[in-house]
Design a protein around this nucleic acid. Structure first.
Lengths: 267, 267
DNA sequence: ACGGAAACGATCAGATCCGATCAGAAACGG
DNA sequence: CCGTTTCTGATCGGATCTGATCGTTTCCGT
């Protein structure tokens, strides 16, 4: 039995059973405990499992990190952050702003926490959590005072948006200074789109409730057309994107949206 | 059984049930109480749960667990579970039920997951999470099919209820077969009460939306009067409490509520 | 408010586990 | 065929875990 085979077996055992004891492996592999320990050292160094007293356990990467455990799977991360930093400069204390569901808007939400006296209306539970959920380390101080968070109701889509008649109805009675809209695609012909029909309807209600529409979308969204159009390009008073946007897109967008802001990726 | 496995099990138990007693863990894990205490110390130091007298409770500040959802005492824990088990028998597949915010209703929500084709309306993000959030350990399977969860909107109170005009408005357009109401106090004169004015108003809207009002309240709630009355005792078609309720209370309640159900604490 | 019962934490002893070290065996290359 | 490298097993002092004991604290019903 080669060392490699042993280690593969150990890994399989750990992954199927969650954890194994050294003594069990000694019996299973018919080697000394020291050899087992050394194998565990190797696998642990590679980050394939966690050594614990008495044996080994499946790695738990779900550490005490930020709630954004999906952040790692997020694409165009640095672009999103640059865009969010640019977008937040459009917000002033005391405003009432809407924030749609989405990863870019979620990033933006973290920055909005520092703006005093805001009223935030959102249809995303994740975004509401940013303001209220208060997670790790009790660093609650330093939060800007006087903020109010209003959550629209509705049923929840897989992408964490609250949608449907309840959401639309709630939005009809609200009036906002500005709304930040995250989209799945933007296209010359298709306008701003999302793959979810219900979400599209709700976002339209969100847009209708605001005097000013600010779309946040990184350059990877250009040319993408989702199932349903939320609004046409002309509806956006402001579009915040990043410098990765091709020249052709810039030309089209400049003439169609009210104002085009390109955030520098540098940051 | 590895120490790590024990601790994982404890965490899972705490997160699904809200809290757990040392004595229960001793039996479940088949180790001494000292070992359980030491495990709780470790998990508590890591900030993964809160130690309380008699056991441990879920921490409020992780993303799944909302603020103000404190379990300070193990006391009425088993009562809450018994009550929830009794209450869930009143629900049949295909019904539309409302669920107010609260710890007892939260426990009930876990059981409601197993009832097929339910429509659940709630103003608690935490309860909505029970049905949809499920992020830990990916053990989603086993959920009953065909469920729809509707969240009312509103602003969030410290105790995790969504309240205010948005919530009330959303509820006015909905009609439910039954609503499960968790309360802070019940009293002969005061009726069913809560300390939060806004929450009281929202709960009243929830009650008005339903044909049948089912109040869930353990015996420690008897004689407690909060700031604001939600409804009088007569409004409850059903009250589910536990056998710890004193005789005097039973007499009063029997004559005032439609039907009094006392769950056995035995469990 | 009081008293009994349960829960708690400090401490100790026994068992187990861990890792540094050394020696022997197998594999490898010239 | 021999020296070197790598892997494995054995030993042993130290670290860690667990259960039991016991005095103290906290809780809860009366």
């Amino acid at each position: 039995m080669l060392a490699r085979q042993r280690q593969d077996l150990i890994l399989e055992e750990v992954r199927t059973r969650g954890a194994v004891k050294v003594s069990e492996l000694v019996e299973l592999l018919d080697v000394s405990d020291m050899t087992v320990r050394r194998d565990l050292d190797v696998l642990s160094d590679k980050g394939l499992l966690d050594k614990v007293h008495g044996g080994a356990a499946a790695r738990q990467d779900r550490s005490v990190d930020e709630p954004g455990f999906e952040v790692k799977s997020m694409r165009a991360l640095s672009e999103k952050e640059s865009i969010a930093r640019s977008a937040v400069t459009l917000v002033h204390p005391g405003m009432a702003v809407g924030v749609s569901a989405g990863t870019t808007t979620w990033t933006l939400a973290h920055l909005l926490r520092d703006v005093p006296a805001l009223t935030i209306v959102t249809n995303s539970m994740r975004i509401a959590d940013v303001f209220l959920g208060w997670q790790s380390q009790g660093q609650a101080p330093g939060r800007a005072p006087g903020q109010t968070v209003v959550l629209t109701g509705g049923i929840r889509t897989p992408s964490d948006a609250l949608v449907g008649p309840v959401a639309v109805h709630a939005l009809r009675s609200l009036h906002l200074d500005a709304v930040f809209l995250g989209v799945h695609g933007m296209d010359e012909a298709g306008g701003f789109t999302t793959p979810n029909l219900m979400e599209s309807e709700t976002n339209r209600a969100l847009v209708d409730a605001a005097r000013q529409l600010i779309v946040v979308a990184d350059h990877t969204k250009w040319g993408v057309v989702g199932l349903s159009t939320i609004v046409g390009l002309e509806a956006a008073q402001v579009l915040v994107s990043d410098s990765g946007l091709p020249q052709a897109a810039r030309d089209v967008l400049s003439s169609r949206v009210g104002r085009l802001i390109l955030a520098e990726n540098a940051a």
